[in-house]
Design a protein around this nucleic acid. Structure first.
Lengths: 242, 242
DNA sequence: TAATAAATATGTACTTACGACACATTAATT
DNA sequence: AATTAATGTGTCGTAAGTACATATTTATTA
């Protein structure tokens, strides 16, 4: 058997195998990185580098490495793009449509992440990275608009049951800021007085001024989430804002 | 070259390819098929055919085919195993741990499905398939116990907000059956009278007897879900059982 | 600097939902 | 026919939700 014949045999086997089921599918992770700034919910996007989508923006994603599990891959993308590593991250949905990627079959696992844009550690990796208000987004590359909407839907659900919203705010915040953030996420207007009541009834917050023995009871005072509720995971602590 | 040498070569190539980046990851779909019978929530399991897990049961799953999207694959598995094709199915979570499958990297997308065990169309494909009460399951093959628990958790959430529970019941059912099913899923006891109130206040149900002009108002009467709430998808109709 | 405007903090009244419980009615059992 | 078990309906007290009013503090401006 000649070397060439052997090579042909190998190639044939490779062909065969790579056309076998289960071997020709790419796996990526896409991150919907959400922040809150200027009274708007924003998502971090990058200009798509694919010809098919020239001019369009896309979510931040990458192929997973063979020795990397899904959470590790998402944290890696977040760290690479934002410099942050202690962030809230949650898997939302896996998208596996046949035609979703122009260059072949790619299945993507979508995560969403909540970060504090005003965090001083935030350091975007690229000039091509920008924050876009979610209300202004009409079209994205791939099926990323669908992914974004799915994640926003999940966020709206989560926000009603879990204290995830505080990941979008700085350590100290006013009640008005918190309310405006709820309104931005839920797309509704809330009564200022009733909102305040729900929050305080639930005993989530610490009054910074009272805690530090400053002059209490002046308007515009700042609060922080009580320690026992602070969690980067989805957590079990319930904050129902029904 | 002997047949044996050729076989070795093939095996070697397969080994090689299976270590390439992005090409050596298998994708499967696993279905947590849930039913309700004898006042218990049950899951359909099969005896694992892998040596590593001899004696253990596993969920029903399969590799996805290259030309098959995720939902299609799940419906195929369901159809193959149960003969049913008009069922409730929902994606829950994707599991991608490095060590979850003994023969290599396999990522699995988990779905759960709700079916009516008493449906006459139900036809199990195998003698090895059995219904197991979920409360009695301690250990499963792979990470399938984790997958099962994740799906049960999702079901408990869904059941509080959406009318998915009716997929587990036959067309006609008594209020007591419905209540016992809620109790089985949520793991709590409910007050019969208050439960009844919540249900009827929400105006979900049709009294079969009244509808068919039989003698109304006798005990043990049967109900059915109103048409406008019937949906195989997650739906938007809300049935909050807070 | 005093008057006005804007934003904040707290309170009240009405309505609705929830949870615990009592009682009447029908079907099955003895 | 009497007893038991299960089903159907109602009441009441409490907690939560919603709408709205008023007072206080800070910012603005004449």
């Amino acid at each position: 058997m000649t070397e060439k014949a052997l090579q042909q045999l190998k190639t044939a086997e490779i062909e065969k195998i790579s056309h076998l089921d289960y071997f020709n599918i790419g796996i990526t992770v896409d991150c919907v990185i959400l922040g809150y700034d200027e009274k708007e919910l924003k998502v971090l996007l990058i200009k798509s580098d694919m010809q098919e989508f020239s001019g369009l923006y896309s979510l931040l994603g990458d192929f997973i490495k063979p020795d990397e599990d899904l959470e590790t891959a998402s944290y890696r993308i977040l760290k690479e793009r934002t410099g942050l590593d202690d962030v809230y991250l949650e898997q939302v949905h896996t998208f596996g449509g046949l035609k979703r990627h122009p260059s072949g079959r790619v299945i993507t696992i979508a995560y969403y992440s909540l970060i504090d844009i005003r965090n001083h550690k935030l350091q975007l990796s690229h000039n091509e990275l920008h924050w876009h208000p979610v209300t202004e987004i009409r079209k994205l590359a791939f099926d990323h608009k669908l992914i974004l909407d799915t994640c926003l839907g999940r966020l709206r659900e989560q926000v009603m049951e879990h204290p995830v919203i505080f990941n979008l705010l700085p350590e100290k915040f006013s009640l008005r800021e918190l309310q405006e953030l709820y309104e931005a996420i839920l797309g509704v207007e809330l009564d200022r007085r009733n909102f305040r009541k729900k929050i305080s009834i639930k005993d989530w917050l610490v009054d910074i001024d009272e805690m530090e023995n400053n002059v209490p009871h002046r308007p515009g005072r700042l609060y922080t989430l009580k320690k026992q509720y602070k969690t980067k995971g989805s957590g079990t602590k319930v904050l129902a804002l029904h």
